[in-house]
Amino acid sequence: MSASETPGAPQVKSAVRTVELLEFFAGRPGMHSLADVQASVGYPKSSLYMLLRTLVELGWVETDATGTRYGIGVRALLVGTSYIDGDEVVAAARPTLDRLSDDTTETIHLARLDGTNVVYLATRASEHYLRPFTRVGRRLPAHSTSLGKALLATHPDEQVRRLLPEKLERLTEHTITDRERLIEELHEVRERGYAVDREENTLGLSCFGVAVPYRTPARDALSCSVPVARLTPAHEQLVKEALFDARDRLAMATRHL
């Protein structure tokens, strides 16, 4: 749902357009021409140009050397950083993330459900040499990640149906693209207490995720990512046990929130 479709109080069109523009740039790294931006957002070219120039002057949008291509500005980074710095769950999770990283020696994530996506709030890099790990602030489809599936499993089936389309985006050949099949898997997630992404988001990588039950339905989840080549049955069991322990410790640390 876009900002202009959000139900509730009457909206100011210019404010809605500003937010939608910033979300456009946040979701598409790099620089974009005016024509490309207009094709995506659909605003009249003249009003779009004036809005972009205003955002450039304020530092929320940047231009290239030619002044004809646009991208997200540094002020957006400042706002994102302040969100992370001020979040009580992120602060409470730091000792838990550090210990989980030590216990597993793998890449650890804390993420939050945001609509149909998960947003990464904190990470701990693996002790092993790997490809670059997921950045804080990155958004990924919930249905293709262990974090997202762990969080979706805390919602009733009908709510999941309202949230997700029937056909889901395919990220790899292993991604579940049928909503009803995903819901069937969410039943299993509820029973066993954890979710698994076996190369559904990134080839060569398996991830295990648990929701943190400091509220219902859950908003945040923890995950551990392991390269398939290193995922033995014994190591998988160690990761699951470490995640359950981390979930319980973080649930205790956030029980007052």
Score class of each variant (00 low, 15 high):
P7E: 07
I84H: 09
D114S: 14
E166Y: 11
Y43W: 12
A221M: 06
R135S: 12
S2H: 14
A125P: 04
A35C: 00
T81Q: 15
R161N: 10
R198I: 06
L222Y: 03
D178M: 04
Y83A: 07
A195L: 09
R161A: 06
A111L: 05
P95K: 05
D102K: 13
A211I: 04
M1V: 08
D220Y: 15
A35H: 04
G204E: 08
V160F: 12
T123M: 08
E62C: 00
A234K: 09
P165I: 11
E158I: 07
F208V: 09
A76Q: 14
A251W: 02
T175W: 14
K45C: 02
P132H: 03
P227E: 00
L250P: 13
A122G: 03
L97D: 01
R255G: 00
R99A: 11
R17C: 05
V37G: 10
G148H: 11
S223C: 04
A3D: 11
M50I: 03
L100T: 05
P44F: 02
T202F: 14
Y129T: 13
T134S: 11
G71Y: 02
E173S: 15
M1K: 10
R17N: 13
A218G: 14
K149I: 05
L257S: 07
D178F: 07
E127I: 02
A142L: 08
G71L: 01
E200Y: 08
L51Q: 15
L205K: 06
R179T: 07
L52W: 06
D87I: 01
A15M: 10
T68E: 15
P132L: 04
R124S: 10
E241Q: 14
V79F: 13
T107V: 08
T81I: 05
I72F: 00
D85F: 09
N117I: 00
P233M: 10
P7T: 09
G59C: 06
S47H: 07
A9H: 08
R131L: 10
L163Q: 10
E57R: 11
E236L: 04
L21A: 07
T105V: 09
Q159C: 03
Q38N: 06
G67W: 04
T145D: 11
G67I: 05
F133W: 13
V56M: 01
R247C: 02
A253Q: 13
T105Y: 07
R139W: 11
T107E: 13
R75I: 06
S82K: 11
G73F: 08
Y129V: 14
R179W: 08
V239N: 04
V196P: 01
G148A: 05
R161T: 02
R69Q: 15
S206W: 09
D102P: 00
R94Y: 01
R135W: 06
D64T: 12
G73M: 10
E241G: 00
V118C: 11
D64Y: 05
K13P: 01
A93H: 00
V19Y: 05
Y70A: 07
Y43Q: 06
A65Q: 14
D178Y: 04
G80K: 12
R75N: 15
S4R: 15
T232K: 08
H128F: 14
V90L: 03
V12K: 12
D98Y: 02
R192P: 01
S206F: 06
R161D: 04
V136K: 05
E20F: 09
G30A: 06
R181K: 10
F24K: 01
V189G: 13
P213Q: 09
P165R: 07
V189W: 11
G27K: 08
L205F: 12
R255F: 02
Y194Q: 04
